[in-house]
Design a binder for these strands. Structure first.
Lengths: 218, 218, 218, 218
DNA sequence: GATGAATGAGCATTCATTCAT
DNA sequence: CATGAATGAATGCTCATTCAT
């Protein structure tokens, strides 16, 4: 009731870099465990089909006790989104990609970075595509905003490349949308793409995506 | 009790076009109505959040009576997949695309056809992406098979174009997968693409997709 | 959700007088049974300590099925209040007390009427005193309004008697409040009043209450 | 976590008045604090709706630690009854009312004393009326016994007044019951009596109550 | 004494499905 | 075919109380 829900900024991956590991580490470890295990269940069975009892069993944490770490089942889903959604963009920014000079190199590096990131959490991405609907409206807005931001980032890169005449697309915003969407090819279509090794897949994706933007590629 | 929201105006169009007044028409019309209304509910609220009571209310068919037309809630989902999944490929075949000579023209026509088809049932496509997980394994296999078939079709076209040197991709199977995936851009990303009119969107999609396959396009 | 709760004007005791017993009698009978049995449980164990399972067991109606007749546990409490709260005032009005000429006779009749009515549902009155807190705010307002109306009725009677010099109180509104409160003596203090027969109790109450209002009574 | 609502200003007044600095004072102060804070919660939210966590938060005493001072939630309720129930009668006795000669003066003083006492703890009285049901049978018996004793006290006074011909009631025991009940008018009906100041209310109550006992009053 | 994580029984409510009529 | 009451297992969540530290 009068508790503030969603005090969950504390699961950011940045915490791993923090030189000060002397906190309520136990509590956080528990919380992370819940998120991780629950995410696996959401992936395997779907959010609606996963019960709190499942999560209790999977984490080994007593059902009632679970609620000392999270505030509701929905809360876990939101936390899961935060855990697997944010890092992608964090990594993106951290690499200083926005400061790169050559648009072609810039696009290529950003693209590869994202392809790898998404490939490595592909089940989570698939789950998020599926369960977005269940998010509480407030949180949904945040998620879509972040997703929109990622598109904008690529739009900026593409626009710069257009001005420098190294890229050629009819509509940078559309191209950015398509590009970001294409990043999810593997998570959403992995059942038909098993024949490719990780490296093969990354190379093929990169080439195919860039072809639509960079003339005379490769 | 005093419900009056039985908007029964949407008898399945197929039933109306059929020149054959088969006797079980009534039964079939009912079944189609159930599928259609249930699909709208699945789209709006999600499969898990839609109750049989919702479907009963939406169709105006008594809850118990519903089970005279369908055998379970899951059954309705499968029927919904069939209804909106099959036509796409049916239209595809019906147009005699497979018999066309010029690969470029062939690809272009097939692509446009599919883009239109998917754009017009985009909500249904989005729903299917979301709820695939719920399908019983047996039926899931069928759905994936069909989806794989569609990819194969495009693979065939692309391969022919490669042989005729009018297309240029590194891996036809991969290209076909990416192409089929790109078809779903609108259903899955419509929230960020509202600024485009239907025609604008179709043109942009077509161009972007072809660029990765046809050299010197347009 | 989109059902209209509290469609429960149909439990008024008047229904018993109705010459037309051809309705959804079955449903209503069930609902009344639930209210009645649940009220007994609320009386015996208290609202919070009574579980829906208790009510299911007491009524012989399956737990899930219960919800076809009522919409929530809280709903049952409200229905119970309506059932046992309203009749008192209905009876009051029906007797045409407001039209009586002689204030003394009028007050005496009204008082006796109410004493009897309350004596006969004393456990229910006690329960209502106890559980008022649990009512949803909206419904609580209605209940207090009705209670206030009853006080106003007596205030009117007393004021008229004052004008006619047959009553003597310093403050009619206060006197009416005290009078209405005194009506509940038996429900709230029955544990200490067992020694009196019903008739003894009614006579003593009437006399004691009137003494404070009518000079030289009896 | 970051709670700061520990309003610890209300150490029990009894502890402050006590001239005896017993060593377990700390423990007793804690216990009194628990009772006091819990009572406020019982008043505001009801016994069933108040959780031990609420009490822990309100007192600033750790949840587990709470059980070092009280033995159960029910125990707190009993202690609360004792705290607010006993003083009334203590004050009564302390004033030496039982030794007074003139019955009229005696009744008037006793009555006023009780009216004031109850008026000042009216929320507590209301709470006790509501939650009596929850008391364990053994303790309930004690409470009712005390309440019965209070009635007996007034019965004695009234009987003496009858013998001295200064009072006139048909049944002293009934009159005493009614009188004691009338004392609770304010706690149970305060929502309809806000228009009176404390002094107005006390005067009106006194007059109305006495009218039923003392002939030719005032 | 103090802490707060742990326990597990219990609660109101929902819902797909069945079945007698 | 149609009805709608009936079933009962399941679900998310709460909470008094205990206990190791």
């Amino acid at each position: 009731m009068n508790d503030t829900d969603h005090q969950n900024k504390d699961i950011s991956p940045i915490a791993q870099d923090a030189p000060d590991p002397v906190r309520q580490e136990g509590t956080n470890a528990r919380k992370n465990k819940i998120i991780k295990k629950a995410t696996r269940l959401f992936i395997k069975k779907g959010y609606a089909q996963t019960t709190m009892r499942d999560i209790s069993k999977a984490t080994g944490i007593n059902l009632g006790n679970l609620y000392n770490y999270i505030s509701s089942k929905e809360d876990i889903l939101c936390l899961s989104f935060e855990t697997y959604h944010d890092p992608a963009m964090e990594w993106f920014r951290r690499e200083g990609i926005l400061e790169m000079e050559d648009p072609k190199e810039q696009l290529q590096k950003a693209l590869r970075q994202m392809l790898i990131a998404i490939h490595d959490v592909m089940s989570e991405v698939l789950m998020m595509y599926r369960e977005t609907r269940v998010l509480p409206p407030k949180f949904l807005k945040i998620v879509l905003k972040k997703e929109g931001d990622l598109v904008s980032l690529f739009e900026t890169i593409i626009t710069r490349g257009m001005e420098k005449k190294v890229f050629n697309v009819r509509d940078p915003f559309f191209a950015a949308n398509m590009l970001v969407f294409q990043l999810s090819l593997y998570p959403l279509r992995s059942w038909n793409l098993k024949r490719y090794s990780r490296e093969e897949f990354l190379a093929l994706s990169e080439e195919t995506i860039l072809k639509a933007i960079v003339p005379d590629f490769p």
